[in-house]
Structure formats: structure tokens, C-alpha cells
Design a protein around this nucleic acid. Structure first.
Length: 259
DNA sequence: ATGCCGAATCCGATTCGA
């Protein structure tokens, strides 16, 4: 089966591309982030016409995640159990479900904004809650993976120029330690192959020719447990989807599984 | 050609993103 994760930066603005990409890629289950819509605005009907059902956790103009599947959606959980509030609100940043033989999470980790900002503390708290919530499944015998926009570059090689990010979020030690702690539950970073250049960036800023100059970051990650990682036959970043007018600033990360 | 930021919202300046 083929699964993927994609920060689509508004499912409304991206709907033609989303529908076209689902068909052309033959993806069975897709994790999406930044739907930027309410549940009422979510394009359930258009997806159903292509044979997909969706589990959605979205409440308006910011954030929002979904699982889109044509191989089943069972035991849906909306939200991050035990997750922290921000400004007194539980933001829609997680949804999980069992899609055929594999249990998947779609996550949109808080950005953090600036080191020392309340949003940065919230980001680290959110990682702690995620670790606790997935620990049992990560150590389990069934294929399991947490996919999404982690808003952290795991290594120095995962940003196009480290000097640009000095003192910024996404590369700090506490954020990387939070990722390492998450892996410590039994998850492996399934690193995709790039379709061009030497590093599998997944995000390129819209501004200043970020994509043509390959000024990217690898922040969209697939963290799978041992049964999941063992089943991976291929993985790549579909940078073709980042091209042209009407692209998201993130490209889909595709994973093929012998399941 | 991969091309100089884009999306949602109290309709247009503001907020957010990484």
C-alpha cells in the first residue's frame, strides 16, 4: 500500500491539486496538515467521489488535520489526549485512525514562533504529550506511524543553510531532544529519498525563490515503529508537486509499504 | 523552465507561517 503526508496549506485553496495528486499518485491513505477550514468546509463529497473517506479535526482558519483513506478508517481519535492548551484552547493538531493494516497519526506540531515565546514552551509540552500518547502503540507489534509536519529539522543537514537558522526555532537542542525522546518510544525516522539534489527537503519558503534555489528544510517526517519500518519498500519526496502556480509550500512525502 | 509569498478574514490590513 502507499501512504503519504502533506502539509497542504489550506485544503480549500489546494483542492484541485489534492484531488489530482491522489489520483495520479495512487495514494491509499494520506495524512494532511493545515487544512485551514471548519468541519463544514471540509470537501468530504469531492473526496468521496474518488473513493476516499476522511477523519477530520479542524475548527477554522488556522491549523487543522485530517486522515484521508480509501482502505478504511477505524477507531478514529480526534485530538491529542493529554495535550496542552494554548490561550485556553485545544488546537486541532492531531487525528489518528486505523487504515487497513496500519494505524496512522496525522500531526501538525506547533511552530514555536520564537525561542522563549509562550508558543515555544507550548511546542515542547505538545511533544511531551505526543510521546506519552503514542508510547504503547510505538512499542507494539502492529504497524504504526506518526506522520506530519513536525516543525523541527532533525539534523543540521536538514536545513539549506544552518547559519540562517542560528538562534531560531526548528533547530534548537530542546526541540531535537524532544524528537529524540519520541524516537525513544520505539520509532524510526523513515528518511525519504530526494527526486533531485542530494537532500530530501520537504519545505521551501514561498519567498525569494526558495524552491528554485533549493533553499529547503526537512521538517515533514514519518516516524514508524519496527513492524512499520520493516515493511517500507520505498520512500521519496514528491517535489514535482511543489512546482508551479497554486502549490503548497510543502511537498508530499510518500511511503510504500509491503502490507 | 522550479521564478522573486500565500491564505483566511469583519474586504483589506492583519495574522500566521518556518
Amino acid at each position: 500500500m502507499r501512504i503519504a503526508t502533506w502539509n497542504i496549506n489550506s485544503i480549500t485553496a489546494r483542492l484541485p491539486r489534492l484531488l489530482g495528486w491522489l489520483e495520479s499518485s495512487g495514494t491509499d491513505a494520506l495524512c494532511v496538515q493545515e487544512t485551514k477550514c471548519t468541519d463544514e468546509q471540509f470537501p468530504y463529497d469531492e473526496l468521496r467521489e474518488l473513493g476516499y473517506e476522511a477523519a477530520v479535526n479542524a475548527d477554522g482558519r488556522w491549523n487543522g488535520v485530517a486522515l484521508i483513506s480509501r482502505v478504511g478508517l477505524a477507531d478514529v481519535v480526534k485530538g491529542l489526549p493529554g495535550g496542552p492548551d494554548y490561550d485556553g484552547v485545544q488546537e486541532p493538531r492531531a487525528v489518528s485512525a486505523t487504515c487497513g493494516p496500519v494505524r496512522l497519526w496525522s500531526v501538525y506540531v506547533p511552530n514555536g514562533r520564537e525561542v522563549g515565546h509562550a508558543h515555544y514552551a507550548y511546542k515542547l509540552q505538545w511533544f511531551g504529550a505526543l510521546r506519552a500518547a503514542v508510547a504503547a502503540d510505538a512499542a507494539g507489534d502492529l504497524p504504526f506511524a506518526v506522520l506530519g509536519d513536525y516543525n523541527v529539522a532533525p539534523t543540521d543537514q536538514d536545513v539549506w543553510d544552518l547559519t540562517v537558522f542560528e538562534g531560531q526555532t526548528h533547530v534548537t537542542a530542546p526541540e531535537r531532544e524532544a524528537l529524540a525522546a519520541l524516537r525513544g518510544t520505539g520509532l524510526t525516522d523513515v528518511v525519504p529519498r530526494p527526486l533531485k539534489y542530494d537532500h530530501p527537503f520537504t519545505y521551501w519558503d514561498y519567498r525569494q525563490l526558495g524552491f528554485p534555489k533549493n533553499r529547503g528544510m526537512r521538517i515533514d517526517l514519518v516516524y514508524g515503529n519496527a513492524p512499520f519500518a520493516k515493511a517500507v519498500s520505498d520512500s521519496y519526496v514528491d517535489r514535482e508537486e511543489r512546482k508551479g502556480k497554486g502549490a503548497s509550500d510543502h511537498a508530499p512525502v510518500v511511503v510504500d509499504l509491503d502490507l
